[in-house]
Design a protein around this nucleic acid. Structure first.
Lengths: 342, 342
DNA sequence: AAACATAATGGAACCGGTTCCACTTTTATG
DNA sequence: CATAAAAGTGGAACCGGTTCCATTATGTTT
């Protein structure tokens, strides 16, 4: 446990002033004779000197830290998003402070407080949907807030990066309709969430376009956390006139739904055609391989980081940016024509 | 973009000195009259004051930030570890700076530099195996380093939290042997990694105990990144006398291996019995459900955080702690008796 | 070689908190 | 009621960097 050398230690050892050492530390901030620079560098080396970020940030809080606020990271979608965001940030010399909310308003509020105290330059978040005042306050403070995946409609001033939810649910539903399905169900996110709402909207559009009757019993909202998806599935199976096709638009509930189907002995796609919003490698390993909606996570991450940082440098202080990226429908083998009625 | 109020603004507005405000901020650091405290709190509220972490840390770098250095977070094992670590840390009021190395020495070195400059109180890491000097330096500085999942044998002074690799590979192999398999293969991590080595050691122990002949052709090391697992699998299948059972002990390569098996049309467990080190929900959804080795990620996380913080508070500066937690073998349906020789 | 521009360096204030210590006001004790 | 002890408060130094500005060394121009 040795005490760390400070900039003054270095200055003394090198026989120069702290100002010179600081200039060596920050090339471009002022002239330093080559010889001096070399000497100072050597001293820093031998002393094992490392400038302290906390002290540096005191002057002008530099955009060196980004807050990433996700529901949780055990969900593969968020995990891969986190991975990409971290890589993207690192490639720009930015660090990422990872926080999780467990979809809990209260926790989200606490996490945001610590991010405020840290004066992070930007925040990339999947908001729970509440804490409006805090989000506003963050913006007032000049923090660049970017919502990814979801958004909060009553907060229109925030940058948003998301997939085209309406379109992706529409095309998935349309594919099922094209296979001749007439009773198509959807398990989506909470009605309060933008993803949940938009995907249901896309689903309805597709039904309408196909001239199919809409039955609200076939529309199920499940919370992101817990195993609500399984119960929704059971409810669908117990319907008097159960669906022959299903879109699982709630990524967090895909495994819960599939597990329930396996338990119930429902065979895919013979008894039920299935399309899921989930792009993990295992979807291809299932029997049968699942038809999926693939979200371009790398694009989501790249755009998010870009927005969070470009704003920071004051480039675009204009109106909020909304970026929609296209999801890709990947057809495998979990969709078939419905069995003829017996 | 409003300028943030400082502690002096609050002091002025409340008609007190900065020292008093600071005491209000840090209860227990000194006496403050109840009336004063209330007035100051009100002013902080109306001014929207938030103390700045960077300034606070200047005095005595407090153990408020933890570095989490992982290979990547797209690997579900690491993702869930990250999730648990973050939750555990948050429950103690600690923040987590997430960094990834992509298993690259150079990147690891850069990340470590950043962590040094931030003066994090502790680091939880899955080391690549190099950068010995930096790890040592970190310890000298008084940073609490905890290796999780893997370790570096030539760095015996570091705390380590890992599953009992030898035992878990041994029991998995033993299970296969008990089913009558005589040609059991293993795909493990790089020989340079402790996990790779230990699991192979456990595998060998089990073979020996079962009186089975050891064939080095059946032992394959695959890198953690990339798709090396697939190639290893192909090599095993092309053997003159291919294995009838397989342990996939490299978590990162499980999907690559399974994908190759699916491509090759190898049926599990009829042609090949399989046990994998991987505990994602989907392993149960496969056909057949996979027999797995479950790593108690929550325990790994909890112990890691505990170690990283208990040391920070100077409680145990004694010898390094090594914690082995037991993995659990969960039998499902991917193991069967070998087909009789034809 | 004088005059002046430019490069290199040092001194000191500053960022926004914490904390030591001295001083004043209450409250408790005999 | 005198007086000691405790409570409450303020002043100022300090943490470890950055940066402005003044000062000195070096180099260029005619």
């Amino acid at each position: 446990m040795q005490k760390q050398p400070t900039i003054r230690d270095v200055a003394a050892a090198a026989g120069v002033s702290v100002a010179v050492v600081s200039r060596v530390l920050n090339p471009g901030s002022g002239p330093v004779a080559a010889a001096t620079r070399g000497r100072v560098s050597d001293v820093m080396e031998t002393l094992g000197y490392h400038p302290r970020t906390a002290a540096r940030e005191l002057k002008h809080g530099p955009p060196t830290t980004l807050g990433l606020l996700l529901a949780d990271v055990s969900n593969p979608f968020f995990a891969r998003l986190a991975d990409q965001v971290v890589q993207e940030a690192h490639s720009r010399g930015i660090q990422v402070l990872l926080m999780t909310t467990q979809e809990d308003d209260q926790l989200e509020s606490e996490r945001l407080s610590t991010l405020i105290e840290r004066r992070v330059s930007g925040i990339i978040a999947t908001p729970t949907g509440n804490n409006l005042e805090i989000w506003k306050k963050l913006q007032d403070m000049g923090t660049d807030v970017v919502f990814v995946d979801r958004s909060i409609p009553s907060l229109p001033a925030v940058d948003v990066v998301t997939i085209n939810n309406i379109e992706s649910a529409r095309s998935a539903t349309a594919l099922l309709a094209a296979h001749g399905h007439r009773r198509i169900a959807i398990i989506s996110g909470p009605a309060a969430s933008t993803t949940g709402r938009d995907r249901i909207a896309g689903y309805r559009e597709a039904l309408e376009a196909a001239g199919l009757e809409q039955d609200d019993h076939l529309i199920r909202s499940a919370a992101f956390r817990g195993a609500a998806g399984g119960d929704a599935m059971t409810a669908l199976l117990n319907l008097e006139d159960p669906p022959t096709a299903l879109v699982v638009a709630n990524t967090a509930q895909v495994t819960a739904v599939l597990r329930r189907l396996a338990h119930a002995g429902v065979s895919i796609p013979d008894e039920l055609s299935v399309i899921v919003f989930e792009d993990s490698p295992w979807t291809e390993l299932m029997t049968p391989p699942l038809t999926i909606v693939r979200q371009p996570i790398d694009l989501l991450a790249r755009h998010s980081v870009q927005l969070a940082l470009s704003n920071a440098s004051g480039k675009s202080s204009g109106k909020p940016t909304v970026i929609h990226v296209d999801a890709e429908l990947i057809e495998r083998s979990s969709v078939a024509r419905p069995k003829p009625r017996t």
